[in-house]
């Protein structure tokens, strides 16, 4: 369809995206500010990046966060994919309603409740808090996100592909491994990325479930932000925003190119 942008739409889009991006832009610009006073421009400088690199507390916290995010997202991807498969394919079994309820509930559960309840569990079973408990907590809520992403892919998946595999001699497990899994892989990967980001991002649940030696980056940022704006945090934010921006933009370019290539191949196929 041929749609034309009216001045009204141009204005709303510009204002909307300015609202979304201006705060981050200011943050980035002022991370290069020479002054410690964050709102007064005193010339270009990268000193805050240098001092950030020397800040052992932040580096330790970043390392903890990355490990937690890696382990929890990997575990969550395995469990979430299993849960998605159970939801979409396992048919009826006792307690199915409870199961699907437990998959969807954490998505809308406020972080404070999830964090509090997990902390109380860890205390009740006398589990020392540390990286391990954060991983358990993050796995639990992010597996639900993974299973939502994967199950929506499974729902649009042509069931007869699996039946064809069975028909051609696969055992059900074999059919999953050689047909289903390769086809849903993109969804599984985006589930993993989502789980990874959620874990990187989480402040509240980590605050409840972390031990004294396992401070994550968001906890560290939060405690220093409470004292006010600091140029070091600006520098850190800039780094995190650029990593995400590079990641998202390149992912979308890759998928765009894949779509274009597929279209070209299809055209070639029709001509042949």
């Amino acid at each position: 369809m041929n749609r034309r942008l009216s001045w009204f739409n141009v204005t709303t889009l510009s204002l909307g995206f300015a609202f979304l991006y201006l705060p981050m832009l200011i943050l980035i610009i002022y991370s290069f500010n020479a002054s410690k006073l964050v709102t007064v421009w005193a010339g270009f400088s990268t000193q805050w990046y240098v001092s950030l690199m020397g800040n052992q507390q932040f580096l330790d916290a970043a390392w903890v966060t990355l490990r937690v995010a890696f382990f929890s997202s990997t575990l969550a991807t395995v469990l979430g994919t299993m849960a998605a498969y159970v939801l979409v394919r396992a048919g009826r079994f006792p307690g199915r309603t409870l199961f699907s309820g437990m998959i969807y509930a954490p998505l809308v559960m406020p972080d404070v409740i999830t964090g509090l309840s997990l902390l109380l569990l860890f205390i009740a079973i006398n589990l020392d808090r540390g990286i391990f408990t954060i991983v358990l907590a993050h796995t639990t809520f992010s597996m639900c996100y993974v299973s939502v992403v994967v199950s929506s892919r499974l729902m649009t998946f042509d069931r007869s592909l699996e039946e064809a595999a069975l028909d051609l001699g696969c055992t059900p497990f074999d059919a999953f491994r050689s047909v289903t899994l390769p086809i849903i892989t993109p969804a599984v990967i985006s589930g993993w990325l989502l789980a990874f980001t959620l874990s990187l991002d989480d402040l509240v649940i980590a605050s409840f479930t972390a031990g004294p030696s396992s401070t994550t980056l968001p906890i560290r940022i939060f405690s220093s932000v409470r004292l006010g704006v600091s140029p070091e945090i600006n520098a850190l934010s800039t780094i995190m925003i650029s990593i995400v921006a590079v990641g998202v933009v390149s992912a979308s370019l890759v998928s765009k190119r894949a779509i274009i290539r597929q279209r070209q191949e299809e055209l070639a196929g029709v001509r042949a």
Binding site: D158, S160, L161, E163, A164, A165, L166, D167, L168, G169, C170, T171, V179, I183
Partner: peptide
Amino acid sequence: NKRPVNMMFQSYALF
């Protein structure tokens, strides 16, 4: 998977 029967699916179900 153990039957001496094969099927051609309506959607073809090509992998």
